[in-house]
């Protein structure tokens, strides 16, 4: 696996994503999602909102890294907050 040049941050990142996906799967089995309409313009399932949240979080991070001098940890906090809002009311 040395050719993949793993680092601790990327390993933690992918482990977190994998854990979140596994968690979403378990959640789906325990209580299946119901499609509903929130503040997003289209009706979404839990998985849709999760994906939209991850994608927009990536953009939040890129925006913070590229165009501000704010710490990336603040981007992470903002992304988590955004994720919660999106999952609950999106």
């Amino acid at each position: 696996m040395s050719w993949m040049v793993w680092t601790v941050p990327t390993a933690v990142f992918f482990a977190t994503i994998a854990a979140l996906l596994a968690g979403m799967t378990v959640w789906q089995i325990v209580s299946p999602t119901v499609e509903r309409q929130g503040f997003l313009p289209v009706p979404t399932t839990r998985g849709d909102r999760f994906f939209i949240g991850l994608l927009t979080s990536a953009y939040i991070h890129l925006g913070v890294i590229g165009f501000t001098t704010i710490s990336i940890w603040l981007a992470l906090v903002a992304s988590i907050a955004w994720m919660v809002v999106l999952m609950r009311w999106g």
Binding site: T7, T10, F13, F14, I65
Partner: peptide, 25 residues
């Protein structure tokens, strides 16, 4: 995944240095 790993390191031959978000900036 490999690309993500590459993106935060400076890779010269067999040695890799961690550079964080520098390449993205």
């Amino acid at each position: 995944m490999t690309v993500v790993n590459y993106s935060i390191q400076d890779i010269l031959g067999n040695s890799a240095f961690f550079v964080g978000t520098e390449w993205f900036e």
